[in-house]
Nucleic acid binder design. Structure first.
Lengths: 222, 222
DNA sequence: GCAAATATAATAGTAATACTAGCATTTATG
DNA sequence: CATAAATGCTAGTATTACTATTATATTTGC
């Protein structure tokens, strides 16, 4: 199981009370993921979440200051999960190119095996991240939130992948720009494919997004 | 001056009353752009906008159903403006490659000459678009909004640029994916550069984003 | 196994947001 | 200058986004 609390000890905590350590906390996380997926972040409220899990909203406020902070927590959790997934998938035996191919596959491929976290459906979580995670970042006080370390797990993934990019091509000038372009671009294209298909390319069944981004990365680094 | 009303006649209107045709409407547009820039979209309200322009909020509701619809309007306006800018910048004399280079320049370069719309500062508008336009799209009912034609101007830019992409390389499989990746990627990198510089690459002064995306496009199409 | 500490529930409240309605007044247009 | 249209004013509602207090469960430490 992934414990967020262990990973950001030096930073301020995203939560007020660790939700993974109690039954109510786990219900909050589990239900919020599926409710944000169903309602969208704007229509999601702590009141609705409370009535879903049978607890008053002030109990939820003991875990998270507000719903945005809860979203930031889910985003941090997701990227910790991705970081672990990448870490497990890579071996020192692989060539840098093989590593990068594997990483792109992880970033592009929809999640299927949903069992690493007991009370959250990772498939649904990844759908929420695709649709909503941008709202954790694209805010007026993002710099302040960042200074508190709230995006550290995301940054660690960016760092880790950037390092592999540098292994592939040590002279490449913009590794982080490449990595964040792929991560956010994949989200956007997957959102478009699911919701505004007229704004994206590629037929059903073909792995257009994967093919596009593999090509993007390896041509850029060639 | 750009009149949105002329461009989407076949679609449902984004507004309830055309804001360009009255003084109050123009004050609403002008003040909302600068207020969203200063406050961020979440903290921006019709109440605050009303007290800024000296009108009650219900007068604003006569122009726009809600603040999200106003954002959609600003986004539509911006893309109409970009569409015109691209249209004016291209000439049939140019080669497809020259056209595409010009388009990328327009999409990447921050706006400076701010005089095509009298009551809106395009520099501020483009900052708002970079930070907030994703919130016009990344919503639960985006398909419904799209079916009403609210994103038509954006789609027209995507179409127009995709056509130039096809002129450059008729065999390329994913023109729209390339175009939307560039458009949204540029926004994201510019947001990161301004707010979370640790997540992007490139030194001050150098046109890193432009160089990155020019390279991306022309290597992809090579 | 019990006391103390902690977590949760229940109730009650506030300020702000996101609207809507009705009517009086001002401003534009033919 | 009459009529229509737009705006302002006042008043209201439901919901959101919280906070506070106290009572009741539930853990935990001894």
């Amino acid at each position: 199981m992934i414990h967020l609390s262990h990973n950001i000890e030096s930073s301020e905590k995203i939560f007020l009370r660790n939700p993974t350590s109690t039954v109510l906390g786990q219900k909050i996380i589990g239900a919020s993921v599926s409710m944000i997926d169903e309602l969208g972040f704007e229509q999601f409220t702590f009141k609705k979440l409370g009535s879903e899990i049978g607890s008053p909203e002030n109990s939820i406020y003991r875990y998270f200051e507000n719903k945005h902070r809860l979203l930031v927590y889910l985003v941090a959790w997701y990227w910790k999960w991705v970081d672990n997934t990448i870490d497990n998938a890579l071996s020192p035996l692989q060539s840098p190119t093989e590593k990068l191919e594997k990483i792109i596959e992880i970033l592009v491929k929809p999640i299927e095996n949903a069992d690493s976290i007991p009370f959250v459906d990772e498939t649904v979580l990844s759908r929420v991240i695709i649709s909503e995670s941008i709202k954790a970042f694209r805010i007026k006080d993002v710099g302040l939130q960042n200074s508190k370390g709230y995006y550290q797990n995301y940054q660690e993934v960016v760092e880790r992948v950037s390092n592999v990019v540098r292994e592939v091509n040590a002279n490449y000038e913009y590794p982080k720009m490449l990595v964040t372009s792929v991560i956010e671009g994949v989200h956007q294209q997957r959102f478009f494919a699911a919701n505004l298909p007229s704004l994206t390319s590629g037929r059903e069944g073909k792995d257009a997004i994967g093919s596009f981004y593999r090509n993007f990365v390896f041509q850029t680094l060639a």
